[in-house]
């Protein structure tokens, strides 16, 4: 599933070795941002009732450690199959934890803003540019894996539970979508 998802991203914009090297080359500076990243990330998540509701009262330390582990593993590389498969697995965990893709996308935006502004402040301009580009490509790849695996694992779970295969489910969905599109057009909203 992981490779299938990655291959949907146009090759010319896919996270590549140049991106990996930019992150690894600048990891000493980027690692100094870890505390701020983790604290800021979870302050944001815990300050909003909708995302706060995902977590129990006693798990913040554990979740912070998970983010630390991901950040360190990312900056240390390698970006091998195991790394990307881990990101795909996150999609599965998110279904269970009711972390939806809007939450993930929003918090990725926060990560990019935080790391990009600090990269510009702490790195030489060309290196900062390379790191920011790498972070955006990484975000695209990880979001693709998390969101697509979220959806595909949903299909697999529906099949296992109900016997309704993905192709049939998509057919049922498309039949209804056609009706919804017709309604939207009739209402002048499509």
């Amino acid at each position: 599933m992981t490779n299938e998802i990655i291959e949907q991203i146009p090759e010319c914009v896919r996270f590549n070795d140049e991106d990996a090297q930019a992150l690894i080359r600048n990891k000493d500076v980027l690692l100094t941002l870890e505390d701020g990243l983790v604290e800021g990330f979870y302050n944001s998540v815990y300050s909003y009732s909708v995302t706060r509701a995902v977590f129990t009262d006693d798990e913040r330390a554990a979740r912070e450690q998970t983010l630390r582990d991901w950040y360190r593993r990312t900056l240390n590389g390698p970006f091998d199959d195991a790394y990307w498969q881990w990101q795909t697995f996150v999609g599965l965990v998110h279904i269970k934890r009711k972390v939806n893709n809007a939450m993930v996308s929003g918090m990725w935006g926060w990560i990019l803003t935080y790391l990009s502004s600090n990269a510009l402040e702490h790195l030489e301009a060309n290196e900062a540019k390379a790191v920011i580009k790498a972070l955006h490509s990484l975000q695209a790849a990880v979001m693709a894996l998390i969101s697509e695996s979220y959806q595909r694992n949903m299909f697999v779970a529906v099949d296992k539970a109900s016997g309704i295969k993905e192709a049939l489910l998509m057919r049922l969905v498309n039949i209804e979508i056609d009706g919804m599109l017709d309604d939207a057009r009739a209402n002048g909203t499509g």
Partner: peptide
């Protein structure tokens, strides 16, 4: 056609 196939799958499960 779609709901018959779905009902069959569900019945199987």
């Amino acid at each position: 056609a779609a709901v018959s196939a779905a009902a069959s799958g569900l019945g199987n499960r």
